[in-house]
Amino acid sequence: MNTLRDLMTDNRVLDLGPLPAPRLAPNATLHQALQFLVRGRRGAIVAVDGMRPVGIFTERDVLRRLPAGKRDTTPLSEVMSKPPATIRRKASLREAIEAMVEHGYRHLVVVDRDGELKGLLTSNDLVQYLTDQFPEETVNLPPRLRQQYLSPEGA
């Protein structure tokens, strides 16, 4: 039986399967970026030049910068964070978690050896992957552990 610690060390980012990365060119408009954020459901979009990530635009960026009266035609390159925080596909989950916790990031852009975009890793992907490894007994526990059944099972 594994512990969560083993899982974090033994599994790599690429073991998580496909990690969709909604992407746009840096000259896309803020309007397009917002639509992508809404539809992409990943909490962030990656600005790319070809296959190379050059920036990231997250829901946090919207919260931080938007109501300051930016117009819908503002280019993405003016509102995105750059350069984006990246992680190699072959990094362990522990390395990914450390990078997120240390800097407070909830998104890491996944790249291959050549620095080309391979996906977008979110903190939820990590939580979800780790909890997917729980055996059924754990997830089927009643939320109230001290809950008493009124009659014996099967009675």
Binding site: N124, V127, L130, T131, L141, P143, R144, R146
Partner: peptide, 20 residues
């Protein structure tokens, strides 16, 4: 979540619901 819920339950809910 309730204060006396175990961490396993919290992780499970967060994993399923995708809440941050």
């Amino acid at each position: 979540l309730q204060r006396d819920d175990p961490i396993s339950w919290a992780l499970h809910r967060m994993g399923i619901d995708g809440y941050r």
